[in-house]
């Protein structure tokens, strides 16, 4: 692997740092009651979104998952509008209709994050098919977790993408747990074996190092863009926090502290920080703190939606269905 240019190294560090601090500030807002839904934090997994999205062009498209804030930020969504969405404010990327769980942001090429685990794989294939037929050269990335690899719908998506040689990159963020279920008790065979079964070039890489992820993603993106069909990348990673912020209260015992500590030894932010000079780091860190102060202020100060608008956007045609009571 050739070393990336220093500007790219700095940029990768900046993205990881932004995601890390964004998630930490978000957890503060969950605790403060500003994000009523809670969130699925991606702290510990930042190198995956960072490395993959660094391999993409602005016009490329990603499909996210329930643990999607990192994908949005790495793909270029406005952090203030992302946080406002999570906080249920009308200034959010989806006008408070998607929330933390189901974000779309077409301005950044984030098409959606379906809540039905693994089902983005075939949606991605459909977008990729339309792109390929239009000849627009776009590459579609579908992010999912290790839990998704036991879903039949994911494998149906693999089959269609491989059968029709579509420009898709499947990225499995294997963080070791499907909510509380350890991957080794859930997945027979291997994750890459699922791709190989369909003739999809499949690699398992260190998901803690953004430069390793970037190199694997660049190879897969180049294959997709040149008409070579789909790829699968398993990124071995870890989340330091619970599956969801409900674990701040639930204290579920499905993994021990030594395991978490061992993964923290290979922290993606530390790994990339070591490749950036101290002065640059300090400047980036300071810029991010300043940015996030503005982001939090923007989100919290933004208006909440009006209840009379609850049926807006239910239908693309603007159809309004009748009310839930007869004489409303």
């Amino acid at each position: 692997m050739t070393e990336p240019a220093q500007t790219l190294r700095d940029s990768l560090y900046r993205t990881i740092r932004l995601i890390r601090r964004f998630e930490e500030r978000s957890i503060d807002l969950v605790k403060a009651g500003e994000i009523g839904s809670g969130i699925h934090p991606c702290i510990g997994q930042e190198a995956v979104a960072t490395g993959v999205c660094a391999a993409l062009d602005p016009d490329d498209i990603i499909l996210s998952s329930h643990r999607g804030h990192g994908h949005l930020l790495a793909k270029g969504s406005d952090p203030g509008r992302v946080l406002a969405e999570m906080a249920g404010r009308v200034t959010g990327i989806d006008k408070a209709r998607g929330g933390s769980f189901h974000p779309s942001d077409l301005s950044a090429g984030v098409y959606n994050a379906t809540g039905t685990v693994g089902h983005g794989a075939a949606i991605a294939a459909g977008i990729a098919w339309a792109s390929a037929k239009a000849g627009d050269g776009k590459v579609i990335v579908s992010f999912f977790g290790d839990g998704a690899v036991s879903q039949g719908a994911l494998l149906e998506g693999f089959n269609l993408a491989a059968l029709w040689q579509l420009p898709v990159v499947y990225v499995c963020e294997n963080n070791g747990y499907a909510t509380t279920l350890p991957v080794e008790t859930a997945v027979a065979g291997t994750i890459t074996g699922r791709g190989e079964a369909f003739g999809i070039p499949s690699r398992s890489v260190d998901g803690q190092d953004p430069e390793v992820v970037l190199a694997a993603a660049a190879e897969a993106v180049a294959r997709a863009r040149s008409g070579g069909g789909p790829s699968l990348i398993e990124c071995r990673t870890y989340r330091y926090h619970g599956h969801h912020t409900f674990e701040l209260k639930a204290r579920l015992k499905y993994r021990d502290e030594t395991e978490i500590a061992a993964w923290r030894e290979r922290d993606p932010m530390d790994i990339q920080a070591a490749r950036v000079d101290a002065g640059t780091r300090e400047r980036i860190d300071a810029e991010i703190e300043e940015l996030l102060d503005d982001v939090v202020r923007f989100a919290v100060d933004s208006p909440r939606p009006d209840a009379v608008d609850a049926q807006d956007y239910q239908y693309a045609t603007g159809l309004r269905t009748r009310a839930g009571v007869a004489d409303a």
Binding site: I123, A125, I127, A153, N159, L160
Partner: peptide, 14 residues
């Protein structure tokens, strides 16, 4: 399930 989701994606893409 696969081709129904596939159609959703194609529809999103125009």
């Amino acid at each position: 399930q696969g081709f129904t989701n596939f159609a959703t994606g194609a529809a999103m893409a125009g």
